[in-house]
Structures are given as C-alpha cells and as structure tokens.
C-alpha cells in the first residue's frame, strides 16, 4: 500500500523518476503478457485462425485428402437448395421452441418450490434435483430410448395408470422432438440452483410491504418475484436457446450412428448432427464450414432478438449495470 501512497508524489516533473516509472510500467506490461500468454497463444491458434480458415473453407470444396479447391459461394447456394438443411433447421427450431419454455418454466417452478421449503429440506431437494445433471449426455440418450420406449417404456407405463395410451415416442416422427424436450427436463438442476440463488437475493422487505398492502401469493409472485429475478430468467433463456440450437449428444446417441435402422432418423436430424455428418462422415469439410457459418448467423440473430425483447421485459435494478 505504500507503493500507492508514493505514486502521487512521484507524479511530479522529476524526469529521473518518470523514466523509472515508465520502465516499471513496461515491466508490468511484460509480466502481464507473460501471464496472458497461454490465452493469447490459444486464441490465435484455436480461435482466430480457425475462424479465418473456416470462412475460407466455406468457399471451397475440401475432403481432407485433396487440397481445398475454391468454388466461390457454391456451398452457400447449396445450403438453400439442400432439403435436409431446411429439415434440420426446422427440427432444431421446433425443438428449441418446445424445449426452452418448458425448461425455463419447470426450473422456475422448482426454484419457487424450493424457496418455499424449510432450510434443511430445500438443501436436500436441491441436491436431488441437481443430481441428474451429472449424468453424461450419452447415458441420457440411452435412458431416453429405454424410458420412452413405446411399448414397454416407463413413461407410457405410468401414463397407462391414468388411462392414457402413450405415443411411440422413439419411433413416431411427431413425438420424437417432444420426447427429447421432456427428457431434457430431467437435467434442469443447474438452472434451478441459479434461480434459487436469485430468489434468495430478493429483499424480504418487498414481500413484507406487499403483504401489508394485502397482496396474495400470486400477486407477490407476478409483481415482485418475477420482475426481481427477470435478469436471471433472461440469462437462462439466452444460454438455453444457444444450447438448444446446438443440441447433439442425446439425439445423436439415440437416433444416429453406424447400423441404426430402427428409429426414424429424420425427425431427430438436428442441425449440428447434420453438420457433424457432413464434416466427419461424408468429409464435406467445405460444405460443413458453410453450415457452421449459417448456424452462427442464426444464433446471433436469435440472441439479438432476445436482447432487444429483453429491453422491454427485463427489469434491472438501478444499481445493477
């Protein structure tokens, strides 16, 4: 701290002092760069160069074995003409539209429930809700095939108790995406924890004065809780939308891979799955690169729309940001 005390005194005109100070700052910058060097190298090699090279590849025909040959915007033209691109985008869009609202609503509901419980039981059930999140997505994919099996699966077994004849979740193209969206609810635990932390940060005084004014639970929830945690809800919506657009593991495990003829593939052909197939199964690296850029543009556009909407909907306290 004596260094900081010395600093103002040293800011005089003494040129000798100034030179040493400049030298110190140079040393400081050099030391900083040394600490930053892992990221700088990594950024250049694994981010900056790949971005540039991917953009270049998207304008070429490249199969890894032969050198890339420049074909202009042909890949992008093909993106429009390829019916599977439209299908994959549509599948991904439908899945996102189903999954994100479900996921967010369920995690809010569970967080509110936990917030209502006593300290000990909320701690216990928080753990219970979080545990499935630890399951590797591949295992979730396997579990999906088992639990949602049309004939013998546990889901339809339970639906049967209520006299509901459950659909063939894993084979009926109409039910594959809803099934995957429901399965994804099993791993809401992370969002629940984030929302619960946000709920606990809502000042108690707000509820007390609302109660004095005669507000009931529902009014308190819609007028206090939801606005106060809306930045967190927004965060979860954005992060989940981006993740849903890139969904891969569970659906790929359950519906794709070598020798899979059993299940209806096309209904679960999500965008990143198709991209992966193009790149690493058909070795259409140029085309897959163009696909990646289209995905990037779509995600950016959707995130921008969400940000724009959030300006109107999300409530930020004056002192936050």
């Amino acid at each position: 701290m004596s260094v900081t005390e010395l600093a103002p005194a040293a800011s005089g005109i003494d040129p000798e002092r100034q030179r040493t100070r400049r030298a110190a700052r140079r040393r400081n910058t050099r030391a900083a760069l040394l600490f930053l060097s892992p990221w700088i190298i990594g950024f250049l090699v694994f981010t900056a160069w790949p971005i540039g090279y991917s953009a270049y590849l998207s304008l070429t025909d490249y199969d890894v074995i032969n050198d890339p040959s420049f074909i202009g915007f042909d890949n992008y033209v093909q993106l429009i003409e390829d019916p599977k691109i439209a299908l994959a985008l549509w599948n991904t869009f439908i899945f996102t539209v189903l999954q994100v609202p479900l996921y967010v609503i369920v995690s809010i509901a569970l967080a509110v429930l936990l917030n209502q419980a006593g300290r000990r039981s909320s701690g216990f059930f928080r753990t219970v809700f979080f545990l499935p999140k630890m399951t590797p997505p591949v295992a979730v994919g396997v579990l999906f095939l088992l639990l949602f099996n049309g004939q013998n699966g546990l889901i339809n077994h339970v639906l049967g108790w209520f006299g509901i004849n459950g659909p063939a979740w894993t084979t009926d193209p109409a039910w594959v995406k809803p099934g995957l969206a429901i399965m994804s609810l099993w791993t809401v635990g992370g969002s629940v924890i984030i929302l619960l932390a946000a709920l606990r940060a809502v000042p108690n005084q707000l509820y007390e004065s609302a109660r004095i004014d005669g507000a009931n639970f529902w009014q308190q929830t819609t007028k206090i809780t939801v606005p106060m945690i809306s930045p967190t809800i927004f965060f979860i919506v954005v992060v989940n939308t981006i993740a849903a657009f890139q969904t891969f593991d569970e659906a790929y495990t359950a519906f794709f891979g070598s020798g899979n003829t059993t299940y209806s593939n096309d209904a679960a052909l999500f965008y990143v799955i198709y991209l992966f197939q193009q790149a690493f199964q058909f070795l259409h690296m140029g085309y897959a690169s163009a696909m990646a850029w289209l995905l990037f543009v779509v995600i950016m556009a959707v995130t921008a729309i969400q940000l724009w909407v959030s300006r109107r909907v999300v409530y930020y306290e004056a002192d936050v940001r």
Binding site: F46, T47, I51, S54, L57, V64, A292, L295
Partner: peptide, 20 residues
C-alpha cells in the same frame, strides 16, 4: 475478446481445429 469467444458456437472452429 475473451468474453466474445464464449459467444462463438463450437461448430465454427470445430473443423479447422480438427485439421490442426
């Protein structure tokens, strides 16, 4: 820049990274 790289979908860098 660090924060910006978080926004980049993995698919964009996936192929060149494989080539590396």
């Amino acid at each position: 820049f660090v924060l910006a790289t978080m926004m980049l979908p993995g698919a964009v860098t996936m192929i060149p990274t494989f080539l590396i």
